[in-house]
Design a protein around this nucleic acid. Sequence first.
DNA 1: AGAGAATGTGCCACTGAGTGGCATTTGCCG
DNA 2: CGGCAAATGCCACTCAGTGGCACATTCTCT
Lengths: 225, 225
Amino acid sequence: MTRIVTTLVTVISPAGGPPPGDLSLRERKKLRTREALADAALRLFTEKGFDATTLDDVVDAVEVSKRTFFRNYSSKEDVALAPEKELWAGYAVEIEACPLAGPILTVYQEALAVTLAGMDPSWERRFVASRRLAEATPSLTAHSLQHCADVTRTVVDTVAARLGPDGPERVQLHLPLELMVAAWRWALKEWSETGDDPGREALQARMGEAFRAIPPSMALTVNAG
Amino acid sequence: MTRIVTTLVTVISPAGGPPPGDLSLRERKKLRTREALADAALRLFTEKGFDATTLDDVVDAVEVSKRTFFRNYSSKEDVALAPEKELWAGYAVEIEACPLAGPILTVYQEALAVTLAGMDPSWERRFVASRRLAEATPSLTAHSLQHCADVTRTVVDTVAARLGPDGPERVQLHLPLELMVAAWRWALKEWSETGDDPGREALQARMGEAFRAIPPSMALTVNAG
DNA sequence: AGAGAATGTGCCACTGAGTGGCATTTGCCG
DNA sequence: CGGCAAATGCCACTCAGTGGCACATTCTCT
């Protein structure tokens, strides 16, 4: 068995000045394998199914050791849900700076709309794949929900801190957020079930529908049995 | 190494009539090991922590093979969350028969209150332990949330079926349920953080508080930054 | 340019969850 | 008693994930 040694020769910026793009060569290399891992993982998971794909399949495809995989992602689920985590990371940032005025439910919704609009174009493609996997794979659903719950907690922390000690109780901040997330997940489900080309506009439309469904659903009254 | 053979001698009901309590000896035996496994698991998890306890610890304590464990529970998480699953199973049953009139949010809440009130007294002790573990262990949180989502889906199915084809859209049924569950989980968190003796009354009180917090939280308006 | 510190990577052995298969035991019932 | 079905035990196996250490690469300072 022959080792394949890939030596990256730094051709550009020969004078060794400040790293291009604010990233050193080392960091760029690491980022590259990180992305290669995510791409390969998403591709293989989609092709063969999440459970049927082993981590060895993934790391072999990227020609990297399993140890290296775990230095980049904390689990098999983690890499599959990376796009979703990026979105929520953006949301957490947004919620720190967004205007905090009006109905809290609207604030939460608006922040998500802004975050979504600000995601990188290339993010979308990965996100569809990730979402379809998550809908089809119980362990991914579980991890996704758990991550949502984590983010939810930090978001409530952030908002509570911004509103100061005289602000509303934490339940009051928590429940509307959970409702917003529930609507968002509903929108995601509808969106990822879309046949062939689920673009971002379609997702935004679904999200709008789900958000608009909130008020009537709260007032819904039934009568049977 | 000497095998320990535990032969269960049927002393009671010597005439071999119909199985007492509607359960045959075989079924009673199986149920007994099932419960012994749950008890041992919950005890060991609480003592040593969920992650630090291996399944071998559990099955050794019950003197049963690992294979037998997996014939009773689908995973390590499953046994730890058994009490919660029993509750939701009861909820699913309740929702099939409960009166379906009035605000849907109230219907969902009432059904949970009824289910909770109907749980076996011995259930409560296990449930506290299970909940405290779930709050402290990410993988348990994840599985708990996933199971909630599963139940949620079937509940919406049931209600939709009961309301017939001319009933409201599924989103309208889904969102209030998610909100109710969010409030319930909030109540659980508060309850399981209670110092020493969290009785059922305390849980019911917490639940009531959380449910009453829903309307004001939906109308909450903020103004800062 | 070169020495040495950081940092990233590969490899290897290991634990622990979960599964499949098969032989054996145990309760069931005619 | 004898055959049948269900439950169990045992064993070998796969795969996710971790710890440790040696090696390679990049960075930094002189």
